[in-house]
């Protein structure tokens, strides 16, 4: 079976600063993988490399068997055009720490925007599906609300619905609850838990240890741009093998 995400020695530098220093990992279809680690460890950068919001400096990264950002012909690599990159991103949903909803569109408009303009779905069908998705995230009554009228938790749930509207085969979550008031975290995690139960392949950068322990199939602990250790939640969170993991967990648990 082709891995949904496969990384081989992925490196990323910003100028002289090497943020990723050789990442190797795999995520199987249907797997929920949580990236943990201190801030600055490169978790978010790696996540952004997966849908080519950042380009990798060295190493190779595949999503569903396709090389990210390049096309291989013979033994030469060709950079993809913007059009081709955009085409590949259709299948990868992304949820941001700061929601990034489109403030000039209603909740419904946010969700139908890409299906109508990118997938060229008929407007009526897109609206119907958007309503189903809003129902699913528990916001059917907020279809006509603008983002500024919604709470952080509601905005993030709309953002998840917006990503799901593209029928992605992979969902990336970049600290989806870090910008939320504590009492709003639960409603977003509930939606994510539901997604995981439905078999969605997910890569989640998070600081929610409870969520990682309960929902993740694999936990990856990163520090200083490398994967320190990975395994099941029980292995990594319950019986960490490395001092750095133990030190981190001692602080957050």
């Amino acid at each position: 079976m082709t891995a949904m995400i496969k990384a081989e020695n992925v490196r990323k530098s910003f100028g002289n600063l090497e943020v990723l220093r050789g990442i190797d990992l795999q995520v199987a279809p249907g797997e929920v993988s949580c990236l943990l680690g201190p801030s600055g460890s490169g978790k978010s950068t790696f996540l952004r490399c997966v849908n080519h919001l950042e380009s990798v400096t060295a190493g190779q990264l595949w999503v569903d068997g396709e090389l990210v950002g390049y096309r291989r012909r013979g033994d030469r690599l060709f950079e993809l055009r913007e059009r081709e990159i955009a085409h590949r991103r259709r299948d990868i949903g992304m949820v941001f720490q700061r929601f990034n909803l489109f403030p000039h569109l209603t909740a419904l408009g946010n969700i139908t925007e890409a299906p109508v303009n990118v997938l060229k779905e008929p407007r009526a069908a897109a609206r119907e599906r958007a309503m189903q998705l809003l129902e699913r995230v528990g916001l059917a009554d907020k279809a006509d609300a603008y983002p500024a009228m919604l709470s952080g938790g509601q905005q993030q749930r709309v953002a998840i619905a917006r990503a799901l509207a593209m029928r992605p085969k992979l969902m990336l979550f970049d600290e989806p609850t870090s910008a939320l008031d504590p009492e709003l975290v639960g409603e977003v995690l509930d939606v994510m838990r539901g997604l995981a139960e439905d078999g969605m392949t997910m890569m989640v950068v998070t600081h929610e240890m409870g969520f990682a322990r309960e929902v993740a199939d694999t936990v990856v602990f990163m520090d200083a741009g490398v994967v320190v250790e990975s395994g099941t939640p029980d292995q990594v969170l319950g019986d960490p093998q490395h001092d750095r993991t133990r030190a981190f967990l001692a602080k957050v648990l």
Binding site: R89, I92, F96, F102, E113, A114, N117, A159
Partner: peptide, 29 residues
């Protein structure tokens, strides 16, 4: 906000579409 461009790109919108549908309407304000 640059997050708007990222969100649009992450949804598979091409640069021209992003500019027309997401950035310019907000820039109008």
């Amino acid at each position: 906000d640059s997050g708007q461009t990222e969100a649009a790109h992450a949804l598979g919108m091409k640069p021209a579409l992003t500019m027309r549908r997401i950035i310019l309407p907000q820039a109008m304000r």
